[in-house]
Design a protein around this nucleic acid. Sequence first.
DNA 1: CCATTGATGGTCT
DNA 2: GACCATCAATGGG
Length: 199
Amino acid sequence: MSERPLLQPVAAPFFEKNTLELARTLLGCLLVKETEEGVAAGFIVETEAYMGAWDRAAHSYGNRRTKRTEVMFQSPGYVYTYQMHTHCLVNVVSGREDIPEAILIRAIEPYIGTGLMFARRKVKEVKQLTNGPGKLTKALGITMKDYGRVFYERPLFIAEGFKPEQIMTGPRIGIDNTGEAKHYPYRFWVKDNPFVSRR
DNA sequence: CCATTGATGGTCT
DNA sequence: GACCATCAATGGG
């Protein structure tokens, strides 16, 4: 009998894809966080691509390099966390080194550690646990301390999941003041999944 | 069910 | 001091 752990991180080359392709590929994959409290994981069901230097909605627009965006210039697979108001949001760094692209994880479907998620979120309905980018980080225990980790190693990693039947595409959420970029169809989600943040 | 609004704190100029 | 890749509470249909 195999004693291999149930959840195994993907290998680093998994992230070596065109950013828009990776944003689609991440749908259905597991996002896993291991802490002292236990393991929590969910299937990614909604993502948004941020296309770096020429995308006005990206933090790295114009190759802007600051303490916050620094990790976006790393090789693909790095963890980019940043704070929005009182919430921590998590991104997968994409694009080769010095190409500052990233993919925001906007929603997951709880799979493992639902009890732990409820303890962290204090909501009543399962749906409310992880149907938004600030909600899922709190449910999984992802914080600014995860900035600069890599998604192909523990304790915060991507693992294989399911293959979505149908993927939907549309404009990104909450980026009204970015001119042309507002209309780019860089948001991806699993069709009819109840945990997608908006329909 | 949906739309609106106020609270919120770190980052960057 | 402005700007947000948000959330939860509220009030109406």
